[in-house]
């Protein structure tokens, strides 16, 4: 028995399939993934990190601001479920945050403070290699065994989507795609700073301006951030148009 509805799950897989043949933007894809996984559960937020070539995890996407902060706390404190799932390559499920102070002395209290009561994390795997991890921050409800398998399956499909190849035989392809994905996240942060300064807003608001502009002009997020970082004097005026 699973708590995830079959219809919802089917819809998510269809949307994934659509994304993968469409014009592809890695950050938007990961953003969509976190939101859809969150949507499978009654009360949950989801965050995702990828590792670079030196095994340093980097924040990539989150279903909402609270999940983004939870991911950033884990990086800052160097403890938390995402880090455990990444290091062990195994899912971390149904951890009661109130009882997790020993396991994650710095992360657990912050997550509890933010209103979360349970947490789960899943490794993002490509065969034997672990390339990142996805955390689910939730309420009191437990993930059933079947749910765990569903989320891990979604995570595995996401890796294939991220790497844009169904059978990745070439080791160099993984390096190219992962490095490209990590760089596009950095470019977004730099673009946020540029727009924040130009518009006198905080970087988070700048991100909303960039995203809204991309949507209303029917452009990819990476396309808009690429324009912003490549022509600084012009980007001061860009989002005012």
């Amino acid at each position: 028995m699973s708590t995830v509805s079959t219809e919802r799950l089917a819809a998510v897989f269809v949307e994934f399939a659509d994304t993968l043949i469409d014009d592809f933007d890695v950050i938007e894809f990961l953003q969509m993934l976190t939101q859809r996984v969150a949507g499978l559960f009654a009360t949950a937020e989801v965050g995702l990190m990828l590792a670079d070539h030196r095994d340093r995890l980097t924040f990539m996407a989150a279903s909402d601001e609270s999940a983004r902060l939870m991911e950033l706390f884990q990086l800052q404190y160097n403890d938390g479920p995402c880090l455990d799932a990444f290091r062990t390559g195994r899912p971390v499920t149904n951890v009661d945050l109130a009882a997790a102070a020993d396991r994650w002395p710095r992360f657990a209290p912050r997550a509890t403070e933010a209103g979360f009561t349970s947490v789960h994390a899943f490794p993002l795997r490509l065969r034997k290699q672990v390339i990142g991890a996805m955390s689910i921050f939730g309420g009191a409800s437990e993930l059933m065994e079947a749910d765990t398998r569903i989320v891990q399956a979604l995570a595995d499909v996401a890796v294939i989507g991220l790497l844009q190849e169904r059978a990745i035989r070439r080791g160099e392809h993984l390096t190219e795609q992962l490095q490209g994905a990590l760089t596009s996240r950095i470019v977004i942060e730099q673009a946020k700073g540029i727009i924040a300064q130009a518009h006198g807003v905080i970087p988070d608001e700048a991100f909303h301006l960039i995203r809204d502009y991309a949507r209303s002009h029917n452009r990819l997020l990476s396309d808009v951030t690429g324009t912003i970082v490549s022509d600084l004097p012009r980007s001061a005026r860009l989002l005012r148009q």
Binding site: L75, Q76, N78, E189, A191, A196, Q197, V229, L232
Partner: peptide
């Protein structure tokens, strides 16, 4: 700056605009 890398990149963008220099 591992935990605050996002902030470093944002600051980079802000300072580039403040000074009119490259990233």
């Amino acid at each position: 700056v591992m935990g605050q890398r996002a902030e470093l990149f944002q600051a980079q963008g802000m300072v580039a605009m403040q000074l009119g220099v490259s990233l």
